[in-house]
Computed example of a mutant assay.
Amino acid sequence: MTGSAQGGLPAATVADLYRAACLAELDALKPGNVHSYAPGHRMVTADFVTSADVSAPPLAEAGARVGRRVRGGVEATIAAVGQNTNLGILLLCAPLARAAEAPGRLSEALSAVLATFDASDSRDVFAAIRRANPGGLGRAERHDVSRDPADDGPVPPLRAAMEEAAPRDRIARAYADGFRDLFAIGLPALADARARGLVPPWTTTAVHLAYLTAVPDSHIARKHGPERAEAVRAQARARLAGLDLAAAPVEALLAYDRALKEAGLNPGTSADFTVATLFLDALLSARGETS
């Protein structure tokens, strides 16, 4: 990353940028996911708008640890809309929000955040995951989030628990590899879209499609198996090859959107990473940094 680094951002700014990223993601046509062009999976955009609004204060709470931000955001969301709409978003955005408060380069602050979790982070993140109860979570021999970590003895470090889950979940992998997908897939896709003259919401669609075609979606893998997730990725890559987003191909994308939803396939992790990419980009801009 290049560019000058400024001081940390105030909580109000972080909250505003988080809300804006969540809303921008909803405005974009993201095949298989929930968006303003079409509902899906028994959810509507209004639930996600409310979720963004109520989760912003705990996500941006000044000085709060990552676990507290995630748990607070999930609790506020469940209280407001009665279902899990943003666990993945909060897990990705909470470390970014905490890092955004620190002076110096954001990438260095993020590395420090990921290296300094404590037992409270584990307890709060595990509790948030249990409360949200995401579909297809399954069980694990070690660090199973369906149980209180204290039930298995000493509370495991959060990063160790995420490393355990990394092979099967890209959000967990982000905690283990320094959020590599954001920097290697999301930000480059956003920069390329802008360089091609795209404007929102099509820049956001470009980011979502970059994730959808680059890596198997963890949400699909949890619910339908890793082979199905890889098949969806390969199909998306073939079906969307040569698609010109500058031509605003709404009908072509909606046709694919319907096909995925009729098959019960929701690339929700790709959508979560899309929000996090927009949030990270906005934080970098607000801090005077470039990616």
Rank of each mutant, 00 (worst) to 15 (best):
G8T: 05
G8S: 13
L9S: 10
A11V: 10
A11P: 07
V14W: 00
V14Q: 07
A15L: 06
Y18K: 05
E25L: 12
G32K: 00
G32C: 08
N33D: 14
P39C: 10
P39G: 14
M43V: 05
F48E: 04
F48D: 04
V49S: 12
V49M: 07
T50C: 13
T50I: 08
S51M: 09
A52F: 03
A52H: 03
S55T: 05
L59I: 07
L59Q: 04
G67K: 00
R69M: 03
V70C: 10
G72K: 02
A76V: 02
I78D: 00
A79T: 01
L87G: 12
G88K: 08
L91M: 14
A94I: 01
E101D: 10
E101G: 13
E101M: 01
P103R: 13
P103C: 13
L106D: 12
A112E: 15
L114R: 03
A119C: 06
S122H: 03
D124W: 04
V125T: 09
A128L: 04
I129A: 14
N133E: 15
P134E: 11
R139Y: 13
E141N: 13
H143V: 04
A150N: 00
V155R: 04
E163T: 12
E163A: 15
A165I: 01
A166Y: 07
R168K: 14
I171D: 11
A174T: 06
Y175T: 10
Y175W: 08
F179Y: 14
L182G: 08
L182K: 07
G186R: 02
A191I: 01
R194N: 12
R194M: 11
A195F: 00
T203G: 12
T204P: 08
V215W: 04
P216K: 03
P216W: 03
I220G: 02
R222N: 07
K223W: 02
H224A: 14
P226S: 15
E227Q: 10
A229L: 08
E230Q: 13
Q235S: 14
Q235P: 01
R237G: 15
L245S: 14
A248W: 00
E251F: 07
D257I: 06
K261C: 10
G264P: 03
L265W: 05
L265C: 02
T274M: 01
T277V: 03
L280E: 10
A286H: 02
A286C: 05
R287P: 00
